[in-house]
Every structure is written in C-alpha cells, then in structure tokens.
Amino acid sequence: MNEDKSNDIFIFPKWTWVLRPAVAIGAAGGLLYAAVVVTFGFSPWATDVGYAPVQPVPYSHALHVGQLGMDCRYCHSAVETTAHAAVPPTQTCMNCHSMIRAASEKLIPVRESYATGMPVEWVKVHDLPDYVYFNHSAHVRRGVGCVSCHGRIDTMEVVTQVEPLSMGWCLRCHREPERHLRPLEFVTQLDWVPGEDQLALGRRLREQNDINPPQDCSTCHR
C-alpha cells in the first residue's frame, strides 16, 4: 500500500455487507412505523373515542334512561330549540330526588348545590374545539337521532364518547345524511331500528323534509 495517507479513505469491510438489508429494512420499517403511529395513534379514534371521565355525581344514564325510560328531553330540555343541549340545573335533579333516594350519599353534591346555589361542575365529555359552531336544534329538528353522535347512552353507566367527532366524521354525514335520518318522533329513542332499509327510508325522509346539509367551511367555522 502506498504510504501516502492523504488518499486514505475508510472502506467498510466486506462482512458489513450483510448489514445493508438490515439497515434498509430498519429505515423503511421505522418510517412505516412512524406513519402508522401518526395515522392511527393521533387520530380521534384513538385519542377521543372511549373518553369517559369521572363525574362529580355518578349519574347513570343506563338507570335513568335505559331502565326507567326517561326521555332525553326531560333534562336536556333546550336541545330542540337552541345550540346547546343544556346540562340541566340542579333543580331538575331535585324534582325527583327530593323524595326518591333523598338520603343517598351519592347525591350529596346535588343536595349541596341545591341548598347553596353553587353549581355541580360536570365534566364535559363531547368536547368540540372552540372554532367549531355546532347547533343541536338544527340536527334534532331534522331527524338526526341522538344515538347517531352519542351512541347508546341508555346502556352507559358512565357517559363515554363513542364517535370521533372529527371533521371528516361530520362531513361524512353532511354528504350522505340519509344514513342517519329517522322520523322526528323517534329522534330520542336510542334503541329504535328502522322497519325497512335505512338508506331507502333516509332518502325518502331527505326528499320529504328537503334536507340538504351545507358543506361549505363557514357552516361550522364561522
């Protein structure tokens, strides 16, 4: 070998050739892994669905709606007229609980709130970003059932988010509302099943009620 060190470059030994495919597979796999993690791990299906925070009062929709058969609108009375469905005031709880289970320990926060006038601080489950405008009455009055977005609340001990509430999810229904339309009288009936094909019923209702959901940006991002 020449003694001149200036041209002396490092040459990988031959045995490292076996590592080449390993490195390539590692790089490609890493990219794929990152893509998969970002696609699925960051999607609302992973981050939002299944969110079931602990509430200050262990109120069971399964008991009140599922077993006792209360209508959604007894408590969420503003849902048909305003943007908010309105979590009920403590007064609504006490309509019944001043007599039923009046001494229950679980209801202490409710009774305290009723006596002091300080509100019960419920934890928000279905939380849309602040830059999104959503109006409950616009959907409920046109035959989109509660169940379409909130799931089977009547079977939930603890309210859990079941839909991603992402923009793509909203748009899917705005593009194809017939998948979720039902007669107005069944809007709050969570276990209702159409007697015929949902698509056929939905198309007919859409035609009948002239339902054309807007898809422009300013509909929700006002």
């Binding site: 979590v87 403590t90 419920w122 934890v123 928000k124």
Partner: peptide, 9 residues
C-alpha cells in the same frame, strides 16, 4: 378537561 357549570336554579 373542560367542565360544564349549569345553574343550580
């Protein structure tokens, strides 16, 4: 974590 604070009355 957001809270909903309804009226008591």
């Amino acid at each position: 974590k957001e809270t909903i604070v309804p009226f008591a009355h």
